[in-house]
Design a binder for these strands. Structure first.
Lengths: 278, 278
DNA sequence: AGCTCTTATGAATCATTGA
DNA sequence: GTCAATGATTCATAAGAGC
């Protein structure tokens, strides 16, 4: 039996009540600089690192030694330039003791529209992977993908509604009907995740599609483990954790977000069937 | 009439003979840390920034005020961690006066194989875009891509040799037969470039596929402009520049690479027809 | 031509061995 | 101890053979 709980407050404070090493995986998409002004006061880019570090110190303490910390983030462009606070954050986290193990790329197929004279639409975000040790828990087989030439052969007789499309060969295989492929030869994915942003039918800004935390939860935790999202927002990470048989803990400064996350991660919520049939 | 020339020597020295502002675009893939030991002696990661900065100072001087500098690079993983010298290089280049305008992602479809306990195969590289001013030359229309639904319809009756394949919808459209699409509705690409590494039939390591410099040359220069590759290697950038009607200048420390680049960029080389029919 | 099959090979990374 | 060299692992392509 797994549990989900949502805690209200600043994760830097709330986590102080947690036992050291009590969390197996942290997956989060923190408030970006100058965003979510209502809840976090809109952290200025220049102060982002100093705002982040005391919180990541608690992440380090509560994370198990073989655990992983996955940080989904992307620097904004302002006044014609990319900000450097994410680069500085990576350097600062290493000084705090984290190992910068890998940088995964989330390639957003349908990214935000727009047109500017000096840049194209931004179609990718960083998923920074930090660990405490060089050896950590990694279930590579849990995210394997059908091999390339199968997709080739299959493509020639595809109908328009075949959901597979570009998911398979190109990338890490977030095709929804991946279960059909289990008898095919499988290959390991790469460090580029290729999936669409979720078209949110709820009335809040969808941070990331559920497939994103799902992938990392399958990869870096076992069933029965505990997954933490210290900036839980609308609760996508908790919902993914619950559906994969992991215990979920979410924290958020906003009472409104906490309520929403709790509703979505509650197994007997009124909209369970609707969600499962997605 | 455009020209191509290849100069032998260290770009930091050779460029001192160039007039300020005489180059419109710099596209290069420098030797990565600890790679290409035979020619560059394998720059150690710890000294990469100090090795790079005097050379990029010359890049800054010879680049026109509305020009661009595109740097293709990727940090290596060693002892379980990603190195940070590329992050430090970005910060150092900004201190040198460059604007870090954008970071494009080159998504390599066929990346190097391998299996390790702590990471997947690396399928992407950075294409860092630096400029001297906030307003610079950018021909967005030159790299437009056919829109999704047409590519969708087309895909259903594709033969294996139809070059389009996954290029179109997913990404920035490096399909070779883009000329066929001119009457189609077009869209602007994103900052994720999606193309395969070139399997080189020459006896040297192919740095990047020709489509990569082609894309940036079309985007950030006009016909008749001058394109510089200060680490020209096998000469892919020069070949792309010549075929797009730009003047090309290549520099390399290795006499062997210089000869190769010169042969490939020479319009009346013996293998011209073979190259054009590719 | 067009298709299928085989083979070679990469801007790689890690564990192991030996000096 | 540290450091350099070697082997194991892996898959999307191109190129070539055969039909």
């Amino acid at each position: 039996m797994t549990t989900s709980q949502v805690l209200h407050g600043d994760c830097g404070e709330v986590l102080k009540t947690f036992a050291a090493g009590s969390v197996n995986l942290i997956v989060t998409s923190p408030p970006y600089a100058d965003r979510r002004k209502s809840t976090y006061g809109g952290i200025a880019p220049e102060h982002y690192v100093e705002w982040f570090l005391p919180r990541s110190a608690e992440f380090f303490r509560v994370l198990a030694d073989d655990g992983s910390f996955v940080l989904n983030i992307k620097e904004k462009a302002e006044n014609g330039e990319r900000h450097t606070y994410v680069l500085e954050l990576i350097l600062a986290l290493r000084r705090q003791g984290w190992l910068w193990t890998e940088e995964y790329i989330w390639h957003k197929r349908n990214c935000y529209p727009g047109k500017w004279p000096n840049r194209f639409r931004d179609a990718w975000e960083r998923c920074l992977h930090f660990t405490k040790q060089r050896r950590f828990k990694m279930n590579q087989e849990a995210v394997m993908v059908p091999m390339g030439d199968w997709a080739d052969a299959r493509l020639k007789r595809l109908g328009k509604n075949d959901v597979v499309r570009f998911d398979s060969q190109v990338s890490s295989g977030f095709g929804k009907n991946i279960a059909n492929w289990l008898d095919r030869p499988m290959a390991y994915p790469t460090n580029v995740l290729h999936l669409a942003t979720e078209c949110s039918n709820k009335n809040h800004s969808a941070a990331f599609p559920q497939a994103l935390p799902e992938w990392f939860i399958k990869l870096f935790s076992d069933p029965g483990d505990t997954v933490l999202d210290p900036f839980v927002g609308s609760g996508t990470t908790l919902k993914a954790a619950r559906e994969l048989g992991r215990n979920g803990i979410g924290i958020d400064l906003s009472r409104e977000y906490c309520d929403m996350a709790e509703a979505r991660s509650e197994p007997f919520a009124y909209n369970l069937e609707a969600e499962l049939s997605e």
